[in-house]
């Protein structure tokens, strides 16, 4: 990630604060910009931490932040925005992987597929991720904020307090959203 890339990224991030900013559009742009970097970043981070402990999504998101954002130029609020986007990126990463992975397992017919054994054992895992992703999309249609809470918590590894900051609501509200989401998703996933 070069300085100029970093500056570009920060500039886009800061557009969030403009009057009448097209927030979904900006989020999408940022997501696009950071996704590939995040992947490589995560790979490297994971390898460094392989001995001893597993990867912390928060550590990853933090790392991404350091790499991608010029900290001196952004407010805390922008940082919160970033966390949200990073969580979205992680979700996409997992879903993409699951999708590709299960497609590969079903077999395209033409090509032998080599998969990492440590990960290739359990196809159920792939379906679980996909199921959660789909359920979460459905849930977001009724309760967008609660769905966001799930994304930040599950995919972004953020704590309740951090989520409250990111979403600019009280910790109590986040607690409530999280409880509701667990129940709703719990029923949805078990009924499948």
């Amino acid at each position: 990630m070069s300085e100029s890339d970093r500056s570009d990224f920060t500039k886009i991030l800061l557009q969030m604060n403009d009057e009448g900013a097209d927030k979904p559009e900006i989020t999408h742009k940022l997501l696009e910009a950071m996704y590939p970097d995040l992947r490589i970043l995560a790979q490297n981070l994971m390898r460094r931490e392989r001995r001893g402990h597993t990867l912390q999504p928060t550590a990853l998101v933090h790392e991404a932040y350091v790499k991608l954002v010029d900290d001196a130029r952004v407010e805390w609020q922008d940082r919160a925005q970033f966390m949200g986007i990073a969580a979205r990126a992680m979700r996409q990463l997992l879903v993409d992987h699951a999708r590709r992975h299960s497609a590969a397992k079903r077999g395209g017919g033409l090509q032998r597929v080599t998969l990492d054994d440590s990960f290739g054992n359990d196809m159920a895992q792939e379906f679980e991720i996909m199921a959660l992703h789909d359920a979460l999309r459905k849930f977001a249609q009724m309760d967008e904020r609660a769905a966001k809470v799930v994304e930040l918590k599950v995919f972004g590894g953020l704590k309740i307090q951090e989520i409250a900051h990111v979403l600019d609501v009280s910790k109590r509200t986040v607690d409530g959203d999280w409880a509701m989401a667990r129940m709703w998703l719990g029923r949805e996933l078990r009924e499948q």
Binding site: R39, A42, Q43, M46, T54, L55, Q56, P57, L60, M90, L93, L94, H97, A98, H101, L115, D116, S118, F119, Q125, E128, I129, L132, V150, K153, V154, F155, G157, A181, R182, L185, G186, L189
Partner: peptide
């Protein structure tokens, strides 16, 4: 899958797919 840290291993797996 919603438990704290439940996805860590899977994220690792997804990323480790070198």
């Amino acid at each position: 899958i919603l438990d704290e840290g439940a996805l860590e291993e899977r994220i690792e797996g997804a990323l480790a797919h070198a």
